[in-house]
Design a protein around this nucleic acid. Structure first.
Length: 108
DNA sequence: GGATTGACGTGTC
DNA sequence: AGACACGCCAATC
């Protein structure tokens, strides 16, 4: 099976350093998908089906909200993982999001 | 192979 | 400030 959009998303997400987070839009842009940030999120839904583990908890929306936390098992796991990596999360949203933000376009 | 579906983003009202 | 609407585009049914 040839590398699909999903695989590209998975690989990029795996490149996110520990303690850092990124947004769907930034990832999509980095893949050349432009404004198709939905594809990134949709791909992440398949993250559970990925062969290699994907740190989906490091990917949030542009507002820094843990929109996909309900897709975890359990849902609160996402916040737990982030806090374990030094990211403060309150009310399902990342504090200092801008500070923890990892831009694949610049860092990569 | 057309219709449906999103873990989004940005702009309006 | 909060709620609503539309656009984008690939994968799945």
């Amino acid at each position: 099976m040839e590398p699909s959009f999903y695989d590209q998303v998975f690989e990029l997400v795996r490149l996110i350093p520990k303690g850092r987070v990124s947004s769907y839009g930034a990832i999509a842009k980095s893949l050349g998908a432009g404004g198709s940030a939905r594809m990134v999120g949709y791909a992440m839904s398949n993250a559970g089906s990925a062969e290699l583990p994907v740190p989906a908890h490091r990917v949030v929306n542009s507002a820094g909200l843990l929109t996909g936390k309900f897709h975890f098992n359990p849902p609160e796991l996402m916040q737990e993982l982030l806090e374990q990596e030094g990211v403060t999360v309150k009310d399902d949203k990342i504090q200092n999001f801008k500070k923890h933000f990892w831009n694949p376009l610049e860092e990569l």
